[in-house]
Write a protein that binds this DNA or RNA. Structure first.
Lengths: 188, 188, 188, 188
DNA sequence: TATGAATGAGTGTTCATTCAT
DNA sequence: AATGAATGAACACTCATTCAT
């Protein structure tokens, strides 16, 4: 594992344990087992380091996601929307803390806006998908970032519940969770 | 206006402008127009100060909320749930930034858990209301913090949209927003 | 003696001993006997501190100098020019290191230009005096900063000679030194 | 061009642009296009590097100067002195920044003493020349470093004037400049 | 109640120097 | 000859907190 990666991992761990304000180059270096100044061998400054952690995390989600399928017009809109939610769900469960991490880093900059997963992909496939859903009369005529933050909130809370042992993994199926989301956003 | 209040206001303003990491006694004191050390006359330390801002904010929401009505069994469950959401909605629009503020402070401590408005009231009236809804078969059989975070996310995002001029105030009515929420949580 | 002054004195001493690159807040604070962070109670940053030392030094020269007499048209130009040189000379001998200090600080910023004593006084009395001398045909028709740097160089070198014991104080009188300067600049 | 030379050139350029405090092995290496650590292949440490730049610069002046002529007793003293000044003048105009460079490096070490061009040549030809001038009653009976610093100051200021566009090159001839110097130092 | 002076621990960042390859 | 990785010491600067007045 490269040292870049180790450093990024340390940052992620610290953010999840102590919040984004707890990140210091000293702490990061100590956790990795290198000299503090070494952090600057791999990242130009602290902000670049934190940004890179954010980028890495979004990139992971995007690369796990079948973006092409989401844009495939041969699949029906409801099916594609379900695919999108399912992918976020799967990723979130497989990588607990990932969504929390993204939210924390965003909040560090004072951006209180709820995070919208998928909004960072290069062609904004998710945005186009949801917009298409609204246009086609499949989804409620509301700003799509409402949908995105809803999806994020529900999945994030569920994942955290599972991670914290509040909810047993089998207690809430994806179908149950998706009915919550789908009932919310679909045009009745 | 007492100096305690002025200090808390300064903290809230700073958090909203620069994020929670931007709060320092120096900056707060400068904004209030007092000596830096005076902050410690009113608050034991910085953490107590920030906590007090959080307490004050939740207290405001609760005191604005007709908690007794929410617990009034003479009113139907769906009606009470709608009241709850409406109250959060009204408060959020009347005090833009309030929800953001709460989220920011929570994230400062590394508590990535989505915020659940109403969970802090003394008798957990909201929790009891939603639990009753689940038990009565009115709401989907899911953990109620899923509902809470959904409500928070939707209202918060909408409020932020309005504040940022992304959404015109009349463009999205409360009814439209509530249909999103109610469709989500109600048992079909 | 105020702490501001003590700090400035420490800076001056360090510059004279180790050159301007040797100035660090740590060293300054240690020399004054205060905590390093205290330097920032009295000066906004290191640059402001060093600038203040420079200002103080020029101010001292100016306040020692009878500027009004230099601008007094009832006195002949040669006499006034001699007064100007004498004043710089007197000051320089009374405050050995002062000119060195000014030169060092200027060179810190990469301004290789020879220092021109008196150029910092509010109304540029010296500049006007020398310009008048040129116009009146008393001085050679050359850029006046040549004259200024000549005066500075000669006096500075002489003072340093005295300070270092290279030249005995009586060995070179002011008259001898001034003949060097006056012969140089006067129109034959 | 050898890499030693390239490194020295980089150092000189940095000193002239940012002052002596701006020199760092990182910056030097970047400018040359080599790895930072390579600097230590050619120079034992930073001080040795800077010293070498100083040495090289003085060596250049000396080698440009017809030292033998300056010591040639068949030429009259005034003529030889004029030759000396002319040579410094020519060199300084041909290599603008050279004198500045020397002054900067000297000041780096806290040696506030005005620089005396020619004092570094192996046999101190210039010193002997000026001393001879004093002994012979050609020059004023003053310490010869006064003369040297005067020559340096005048030429340096003039060169800088020209480089900065303050003085047009033709506006001040060498003769005009030399009259300033010669009038100063010659015994009336 | 209010202040200003003080401090020590901390921050991010740069640097000269070393060394294995 | 050349590199890149590594490091410890230094730097300017900020901060939360204390205390005498």
């Amino acid at each position: 594992m490269s040292k870049q990666t180790k450093i990024q991992d340390a940052v992620a761990a610290i953010i999840l344990k102590e919040g984004p304000a707890g990140v210091s180059t000293t702490k990061v270096a100590r956790q990795v087992g290198i000299a503090q100044s070494n952090v600057y061998l791999y990242f130009q400054n602290k902000q670049a380091l934190i940004d890179s952690v954010y980028q890495r995390e979004t990139q992971r989600i995007i690369s796990t996601t079948a973006l092409t399928a989401l844009a495939d017009s041969r699949i029906s809109l409801p099916e594609r929307i379900r695919m999108y939610v399912q992918q976020v769900y799967d990723y979130s469960l497989a990588h607990p803390g990932s969504l929390t991490l993204l939210q924390q880093i965003k909040s560090l900059k004072g951006q209180g806006m709820a995070l919208t997963v998928g909004a960072d992909d290069p062609n904004n496939v998710v945005g186009q998908l949801l917009t298409a859903g609204v246009t086609a009369g499949v989804l409620k005529p509301l700003p799509i970032n409402l949908f995105m933050s809803l999806v994020f909130a529900v999945i994030h809370t569920h994942t955290t519940n599972v991670k914290n042992g509040v909810t047993a993994p089998e207690a809430v199926t994806f179908d149950a969770l998706y009915s919550l989301i789908w009932d919310a956003i679909r045009l009745a």
